[in-house]
Structure formats: structure tokens, C-alpha cells
Design a protein around this nucleic acid. Structure first.
Lengths: 144, 144
DNA sequence: GGCATATCAATGCAGTTGCATCTATATGAT
DNA sequence: ATCATATAGATGCAACTGCATTGATATGCC
């Protein structure tokens, strides 16, 4: 069945696209200003830090972060080149590898978070009450 | 003053980033499936169609669509090459130009909307009540 | 085991984006 | 009018992304 979006739906769609772009560009600008790497680096480092010693497989990161396979492959290459992660052989699947964060990676993640947290607070926290933020998150999750 | 984002704020931030990516990729996939150009083309064509006969200056489009100047410059080049817009000299500002949609451009915009509208309905309309969509739009606009 | 199929990750190539800069013209101050 | 500054838009180059494909291994079926 085909059904046209109503006014509210279209308006929500447009707001979603615009707001995300605006908010993201503000936050990315802060990171750049602080000479920190882009958010995608943070996202990978944080996932790996949470994963701890056992690390994560690239395909697990792909799913967790919604990255395209080839993008993650290249991002991992850059992170490894920068000494922020290590790529280990995977013992029980010789096609694969295991990514683990290094001490340098943890340090950079921590430094990035200092700036990132403030930027999130400015972009979101300062503009919504706690209750509004909760409502927003709930509504957004319905779209996922 | 520095203040850390609270749980709700962080959660809203993450949902905003993830949900937009997911929703956008679903919609773009539909367009691609239908062999239609990407959303950025639609956005420009629609702005120009709304602007009517007098067209719009590139810098006006930049502001309306939050495009970087160089991106719009190149996008306009591609749209013009595809015969979807015309670039006219600007009578009262010889640095500038005026962009106007062509008949082909209008036709493509219309065809794109048929698919786009359905995709928005599936990505948003089908997942939220009208009231929820309105609330979502209001909350998102507070972040702009 | 042997083969067909699926999954993991890398990569060549083309297209796009970001950054910095450039040219041309407009605007404002004197 | 002259000059300094600001704005409109284009562009060279490097980085990144998307697409399609590849190589390597794993898994399921007979």
C-alpha cells in the first residue's frame, strides 16, 4: 500500500535531517578546533575501550557503529597507523582479526571526551530539559 | 563554565546521530533502487522550484540547505550538466549568478518525490503517531 | 572428503568532500 | 576617485566514501 506522509511526518523528517547536520557540524568543529580527530575515531576507540582486553572483530564494530565494511577497514588502518589500536590475528577464524585499543588510544579517547562532552552539553544539554531529552530519545528510538 | 552532559542528554545525542544515519540510509537506498539521484539533488531542485521564475542565487541555496559553498558550486555544475537547472548571469551583481530549474528538472523532482514521499512515510510516518511526529519536530527544532 | 555457498576483510577505481586559495566584483571609508 | 575590506563563486589538491570485486577461509550439504 502506498500512503503519503502527512504534514507532521514531513516536518519531523526535515527537522531530523537538518538538526542532526547542524548539531554534528557544531560538535565536529569543536573537535577540529582542539586539533582532535573526527568523531568516527572516537566512536571506534570508545567501543574498543568498552570491549576491554578481548577486543572486537571488525564486523562487530561495523554493526555497533553502522559503518560500511570498507570504511571500517580503512579507518582501522588509519587508527593502527596512528598507534591507537592494534590488530591481532584471530585464533579461531583465520580470515579475521581482532582489534584492541592501545594505551595511546585510551589516552586520546579520554582527551577527546573532554571536548566532546562539553560540545554535547552545549548542543543538546543546554537546549533541552532532562525530560525533553528523554522524550526526544524515546521518539528517535522508535525510528530505528 | 563547563558542565558535563547528563545521561538523558548523552542518550538523546547518540539517538540523534544513529537515527538520522539509519533513516537517511534507508531513504537513499530507495532512491538508488529506483535509479534516482541522491537527496541533495532533490533538495536543490525543490528549493528552485519553490523559488519560481526568479530563481535563487547559489549563496541563498547554501543558507537554505546548509551546504558548504564549494559543495554547492560543484553540485550546481552537475545539475546544470544534467540539464536540470540553468545558470543565468545576475544582472545587478556581476560576481554572481542565478540558478533556475528547467522543465526537465521539474519532471525529475516530481518523479523523485513519488519515491521519496513513500520512503519518508515508511521511515517516519509509519512509526510515529501524528502527535509524536509533531513533538519530535518541536524538540528537534530546539536544537537548531 | 568434496563441492557449493556464505562470511571476513582488503582494495582498485571513480566520485565526492574538505580545505585552502584564487579571481572577480561590490561596498564602504576617506 | 582611491584604497581597504568583504562577498560571490570556482578550483587544485588531498582525503574520504561508495561500489564492485577479490582473496582467503569457514560452513553446510551430499
Amino acid at each position: 500500500m502506498t500512503k503519503r506522509p502527512n504534514e507532521a511526518t514531513t516536518c519531523a523528517w526535515i527537522s531530523l535531517m537538518r538538526t542532526q547536520r547542524l548539531a554534528l557540524s557544531r560538535v565536529e568543529a569543536r573537535l577540529k578546533e582542539a586539533k582532535l580527530p573526527p568523531l568516527s575515531w572516537y566512536d571506534v576507540l570508545w567501543e574498543l575501550e568498552k570491549a576491554g582486553d578481548q577486543g572486537l572483530r571488525p564486523y562487530e564494530l561495523e554493526k555497533a557503529l553502522l559503518f560500511a565494511q570498507y570504511n571500517l577497514s580503512r579507518l582501522a588502518e588509519r587508527l593502527a597507523a596512528a598507534g591507537l589500536i592494534d590488530r591481532h590475528e584471530c585464533s579461531h577464524d583465520r580470515r579475521g582479526q581482532v582489534l584492541k585499543i592501545t594505551a595511546r588510544g585510551r589516552a586520546l579517547r579520554r582527551d577527546t571526551w573532554a571536548v566532546y562532552a562539553q560540545a554535547i552539553e552545549d548542543a543538546v544539554g543546554a537546549r533541552l530539559s532532562t525530560e525533553e531529552a528523554e522524550t526526544l530519545a524515546v521518539l528517535l528510538k522508535k525510528l530505528q
